[in-house]
Design a protein around this nucleic acid. Structure first.
Lengths: 141, 141
DNA sequence: ATAATACTTAAACTTAACTTTAGGTCAAGG
DNA sequence: CCTTGACCTAAAGTTAAGTTTAAGTATTAT
C-alpha cells in the first residue's frame, strides 16, 4: 500500500495531478483509510494504463469511460479490446506523421548547413541533391 | 497570390486560424492590398514550416521567434540551424516514447484477446508468452 | 507542548491555441 | 438599389488538463 506522496515519487507526477485524476474518476474503488487515499498495486497498473492512453492521445473523459468498463467486469472485454486496437492504430498514424515531420526537419537542417557553408541561401535550389529533395517531398505527401 | 480563403482551402485550416497566426506575428512582412492579406509562395512555405514546427512540439511564441530570425537575414543562420537540430532530437525522443506506448498497447490488445478467448482474466499471468512479456517490459523501461 | 510534515477539500486560477461574436467595409450580380 | 459573399477588426469565449490557494486535520519529531 502506498500513500499519494509515495505514488507521486514513483511516477514523478505532482500530488495535485493524482488528486485530479481521482476526482475525475480514474481510480474507481480507490481505498481510503480515515479519508486518506491508499494506492495498491492495482492502482499502479491503472496509472500505467492512464499514462499509456494519454500518450496515445486519449482524453481524460475517455480514459474514465475505460475505467468504468473495467469496473463492469467481463461484459466489457470486447469494448476494452476495441479501444486498445483503435489507440494502436492512432499511434501508428501519429508515428507516420512524425516520420514526415522528421524528414522536413532533416531537410531544413541540410538547408541551413548549406546556407552557412555558402554564406547565402541564393544558390541552394541549384545544388539540392535528389536524396534531400525526396525528404522534402515525403514530408508533404 | 492567394487570398486568405484560398490558403484556408489549400491547407485545410480555418480562416480564423490563419488570422490568428498573422496576429501572433507568424507572417512577418505579409503583404496587404487595401487591408486585405495577400499570401505569396513565401507565405505558403512559411505555413509548411509552421505546421512542421508545431508537430515537433514547438509553441507559437517560439515559432514567432524563428520567423523573427528569418527576417534578420544571414546573421541568424546558425540559430535557425540549431533550432531545427533541437526539434529533430525532440521528435526522435517523441518517436521512441511512442514506440514504447505502442508496445503497451500491443500488450493490452493481446491481454484482452486472451481474456475474451478464455472468458476470464484469471489465468492470463500463467500463459504470458515471453515475447508479450518483453513488450510490457519495454513499455516501462 | 509545539512545530513540522503529510495528508484532506472546494474552488479559483492558469495556459495555449484557437474560435466565436459583433460589428464593419467592399465588390459583383440581379 | 440592394443583397450576397468574402474580406476586415477587436474582444470575448472555449476547452483541456492541470495547478494553486486557502482552509483544515492528523501524525510524528524535538
Amino acid at each position: 500500500m502506498y500513500t499519494i506522496g509515495q505514488v507521486s515519487e514513483l511516477f514523478r507526477l505532482p500530488v495535485s495531478t493524482l488528486r485530479y485524476y481521482d476526482k475525475e474518476g480514474l481510480f474507481p474503488g480507490l481505498e481510503r483509510v480515515s479519508g486518506i487515499r491508499k494506492f495498491s498495486e492495482k492502482e499502479l497498473e491503472t496509472l500505467r494504463v492512464i499514462e499509456c492512453l494519454k500518450k496515445s492521445g486519449l482524453e481524460i473523459r475517455d480514459i474514465k469511460q475505460f475505467m468504468e468498463w473495467c469496473s463492469q467486469g467481463k461484459e466489457t472485454y470486447a469494448q476494452r479490446r476495441s479501444l486498445f486496437l483503435k489507440r494502436k492504430a492512432a499511434v501508428e498514424r501519429e508515428m507516420e506523421q512524425l516520420a514526415k515531420t522528421l524528414d522536413m526537419l532533416c531537410y531544413k537542417c541540410w538547408y541551413y548547413e548549406q546556407a552557412i557553408k555558402d554564406g547565402s541561401e541564393d544558390r541552394i535550389q541549384e545544388m539540392l541533391p535528389e536524396e534531400i529533395q525526396k525528404m522534402y517531398d515525403h514530408a508533404h505527401e
